[in-house]
Amino acid sequence: MLLIECPYCGERSEPEFVYGGQAHVARPRVPAEVSAEQWARYLYFRDNTRGVHAERWRHTHGCGRFFNALRDTTTDQFLATYKVGEAPPAPAKVSR
């Protein structure tokens, strides 16, 4: 199972968390003004990246907070975790 570094609590095991899907998917500010295509993109279409994937996790059995992570989906290794509102760290800069 995954060992996940919560930015608030430190390294905890996977069952303490709930997966939150792809990160940085912005909800259109005025849904009535976007096309059906754009709304479908927001609701359903995802990158499904084979490689470094920016995603959300929520520490439901810990601090309860959402945070973001960079994880390589070809190895399941985490490259970084970062708080909501922060920009994803550039993968080249991340140690590990």
């Binding site: 996977e14 069952p15 997966y19 995603e55 989906t73 070809t74 190895t75 399941d76």
Partner: peptide, 13 residues
Amino acid sequence: DAYTSYTQRGGPH
């Protein structure tokens, strides 16, 4: 398993 992955593996839980 709960997260997207191309590893063909998951967790023992």
